[in-house]
């Protein structure tokens, strides 16, 4: 059980690091948004699953309730985070951010 918890946590940390590197290094707004939206959701799933497993020592009502609540957090993050990503990307598109291309000089407004 402990090994599974550690593995899941490390997987979450790796995906979080990938998200952060993407946010820092990608060249334009849309690709950064893509890294933030996808990596964040997945890695939070890993981390919260690890925490569910770690807190589920024995089967009783209290532990079941806590596990249910943490899974509810996962559900709500899976609903809310893509919506926020969509809203922000839409705002960028509406206000005219141009996607990055290899030859930015060729673009004309």
């Amino acid at each position: 059980m402990t090994a599974v918890v550690i593995l899941l946590t490390l997987a979450g940390l790796i995906f979080f690091s990938a998200t952060t590197i993407g946010i820092l290094r990608f060249p334009d707004f849309y690709s950064r948004m893509h890294a933030a939206g996808k990596g964040d959701t997945l890695s939070s799933l890993f981390m919260l699953l690890a925490l569910v497993l770690y807190n589920f020592h024995e089967i009783n009502l209290g532990n079941l309730l806590v596990a249910m609540k943490i899974l509810l957090i996962v559900v709500f993050i899976f609903m809310a985070s893509p919506t926020a990503t969509h809203a922000i990307t839409d705002a960028g598109y509406e206000s005219g951010v141009k996607p990055w291309t290899k030859k930015p000089e060729e673009e004309s407004p």
């Binding site: 948004m33 933030a36 964040d40 939070s44 981390m47 993050i77």
Partner: peptide
């Protein structure tokens, strides 16, 4: 909007850190 994106990511990390 880059700042809003950063805020969103920080919010998700905060949720996990609380647990």
């Amino acid at each position: 909007i880059d700042r809003i994106m950063g805020l969103n990511v920080i919010g998700t990390k905060t949720t996990i850190l609380l647990v």
